[in-house]
């Protein structure tokens, strides 16, 4: 069943592949970063077409927004130019090829794309979508329901991850001579 969705699907996938290869091959680091942003945009678009708007939303915000800014910040701090472009190295390529081949081998028994009989769609029964209307008293967004309630504990872990990352970044980059015991490592660098 090839329809317009398939066409969009193929087109976005092709663009994704092209972007990924470009990132791998482009010389300028900043350009690689920008292409990573593009990659995020594209994958978000594809996620959207795969009925995952929440993920698309997040991926766009994170991958294309925050991550790009962070990468550029780092690049500004470390110097723009990559000194030596890595030559093609056969060993990593071999590793990657083998890994990829194994994965492809693994796909052969997978339920096909969009197959309604896939275990993912058959189990648990009733599905989250069916249940959540009762459980959540009419909360429309099932993803939110699953995220915050059914798997709220995961999300708490996620919050903890973010908090950990914040703490980690401050720990790593705070000035050592900072005499202030409390918060804020960078306030005295005004001007």
């Amino acid at each position: 069943m090839i329809n317009e969705f398939t066409m969009i699907d193929v087109a976005i996938l092709t663009l994704l592949a092209a972007t990924a290869v470009t990132v791998a091959r482009i010389r300028d680091l900043w350009a690689a970063i920008m292409f990573t942003g593009i990659y995020s945009f594209l994958s978000a678009s594809w996620m959207l077409s795969l009925d995952a708007p929440d993920v698309a939303f997040t991926e766009a915000a994170v991958g294309a927004g925050i991550a790009t800014v962070l990468f550029l910040c780092t690049l500004a701090l470390t110097g723009k130019n990559e000194k030596r472009f890595p030559r093609f190295s056969p060993v990593p390529f071999l590793v990657v090829t083998i890994t990829g081949a194994v994965l492809v081998y693994g796909t052969l028994d997978m339920p096909h794309f969009g197959d309604p009989d896939a275990p993912v769609h058959q189990y648990p029964s009733p599905s989250f979508v069916e249940r959540s209307q009762d459980d959540m008293h009419g909360l429309p967004n099932v993803v939110t329901a699953v995220l915050a309630s059914y798997r709220g504990y995961d999300t708490m872990g996620e919050t903890a991850v973010i908090f950990t990352a914040g703490t980690a970044v401050i720990l790593i980059l705070r000035k050592e001579e900072d005499p202030d015991d409390k918060a804020d490592g960078s306030e005295e660098e005004a001007a």
């Binding site: 069943m1 795969l50 009925d51 995952a52 708007p53 794309f113 969009g114 197959d115 309604p116 896939a118 769609h121 989250f128 979508v129 209307q133 429309p140 967004n141 099932v142 993803v143």
Partner: peptide, 10 residues
């Protein structure tokens, strides 16, 4: 993704 499906936002 499920064929012919839509996003799980009712």
């Amino acid at each position: 993704k499920i064929s012919g499906g839509t996003a799980p936002i009712i």
